[in-house]
Amino acid sequence: MKQVVCMKRRSTLNAFYFLLKRDLILNFRRRAEIANPLLFFVIVITLFPLGVGAKPQLLQSMAPGVIWVAALLAAMLSLDRIFRSDFEDGSLEQLLLSAHPVSVLVLAKVAAHWLVTGLPLLVVAPLLAVLLGLPVDAMGVLVVTLLLGTPVLSLVGAIGVALTVGLRRGGIILSLLVLPLYIPVLIFASNAVDMAAGGLPVTAQLSMLAAFLALALALAPWPAAAALRISLS
């Protein structure tokens, strides 16, 4: 009996790995699309100096918030990709009917999505921080907040996408559902960057972000799986 349970667990891990790999391959074969949310992120940030004026002090004080709001919007715009194409070609039905827990499969899809859309933000963000005149000391903290925060955005966002995937025009509703839930991440992440720019310690904020990540990892896959079942019924 124990062996059966063990086998089962291994095959679930196998399913996780295969699904992750599948999604990465699919994204790679459509690599032109990967750049889009990234471009959006860059463009939104360049709009701010044009809109509010290029006074260095103003920009510097706004930089943490602006970068994080842009990251939030970029993450939200790319969310639809987690389940949309699978919904349209019927793969999602196959996932729900597999012998493995749907929450694990959801986690695999979210992980792939984050690797493709969240991780690139980490690379680009320091460059944009330079554009906005953020002190170099805060750069590291900015990257760490993005590292801890963007997976939370993908996880929480997955619930919203799972709820709206069956809708023809789910995009705007998705933002209405998901953005209020993003507020805690925004508050703590932008504050951490702000504090770091002022040379203050940021361990409290970072540990809050880490706690959010742990909570989202543990809790978000369940409602997302349940929401997928409802959306497909």
Partner: peptide
């Protein structure tokens, strides 16, 4: 489902704010 997700988040949002 959304209401349940929201109710878990309300305390977090409240204290963050």
């Amino acid at each position: 489902i959304l209401a349940l997700v929201g109710v878990v988040n309300i305390p977090i949002i409240h204290y963050s704010v």
